[in-house]
Simulated scan of single mutants.
Amino acid sequence: MTGTAIGMVAGYYGGKTDEVISRLVDIVMTIPTFPPLLLVLSILIMPGIYMISFLMGAIGGTHSARVIRAQVLSLSETSHILGSRALGLSDTYIMLRHIIPPNVLPLITVKFVFSAQGFMLMGVGLGFLGIGDAAVIDWGQMINRAYASGAFALGLWWWIIPPGLAVTVLSVGLAMIGFGLEDRLNPRLRQRNPEVSA
């Protein structure tokens, strides 16, 4: 949601607004998501699952802004958008009615799936480090407890393989769904590969 909102505003209004937002996004994208998240969560006392999810979205949600911005920037100069502006329709109405549903929503869907994969792995890493929500048992905590109990040294594979396999299968599954949706829904890829849309 953060990247979508930022990309929509930058692409639709263009000009100096786009330039300022794009430069800020470029700066934020150079910063890895995990270290700032780790720092903030280590300061908080007993962060809950909702707080962790919010921080993940706020810190790492800008990575899709550039793709959304490029799509909206090209759409904002089309004849039907210019005609809607000439009719006096509000910017919010144009974005919600003429830009997001037909053109940007497929990109948002694809980016959401890829982001879900990244955030899932990030959550597993936080659980393994013991910084996640202690009230929620996740795969990261299971791997951590197996490691702390000496399962690796004792060869207790039934403690290690199930959570590790679950993380791997879900991550690969989300990646495959994302690639499949990207081929089907991304308008630029459809133009390059006409047989995909057939």
Rank of each mutant, 00 (worst) to 15 (best):
G130F: 03
T30L: 15
V20C: 09
G14W: 01
L24Q: 05
Y147T: 06
A86P: 02
M51Q: 14
A148G: 13
L154F: 13
A151I: 07
G60F: 05
G3C: 07
A58R: 09
E195R: 11
A5C: 13
Y147S: 11
F152D: 03
G57L: 06
G125F: 01
P101L: 08
G7D: 03
G14Y: 02
Q141M: 13
M51D: 12
T4F: 05
L44N: 04
I160P: 04
E195L: 15
P101K: 00
I31Y: 07
A153G: 10
T17R: 00
H63I: 15
G11R: 00
M120C: 08
L121I: 04
S115Q: 13
M29V: 15
V196A: 09
S171K: 02
G83K: 11
M56P: 02
G118L: 01
T33S: 09
L181A: 03
I59N: 08
L89P: 01
A116W: 08
T109N: 11
I21W: 06
A58L: 14
G178E: 09
L156W: 12
P36R: 01
I94D: 00
T30D: 08
T109M: 15
W157S: 07
A148T: 09
V124K: 02
T109V: 15
S64G: 12
G164W: 00
L96G: 04
S22C: 12
G48L: 07
A70H: 05
L82K: 14
V167L: 03
G125A: 02
P194G: 07
A65F: 07
G155F: 00
G173N: 02
V167I: 14
G180V: 06
P102C: 03
W157Y: 09
F119T: 13
M1K: 13
A198W: 09
M142N: 07
A10S: 13
D91W: 06
I161A: 08
S79V: 10
D133S: 02
I81C: 05
L107K: 03
D183Y: 12
Q141V: 05
I68W: 03
L75I: 11
G88I: 03
A10D: 00
L156N: 13
F179A: 15
R69T: 05
L107P: 01
V25P: 03
V113R: 01
T17C: 09
G3N: 06
I100C: 06
L87T: 05
V124T: 00
G14F: 00
A70Q: 10
M56G: 05
T17Q: 07
S42G: 11
G7Q: 00
G155I: 02
D26S: 04
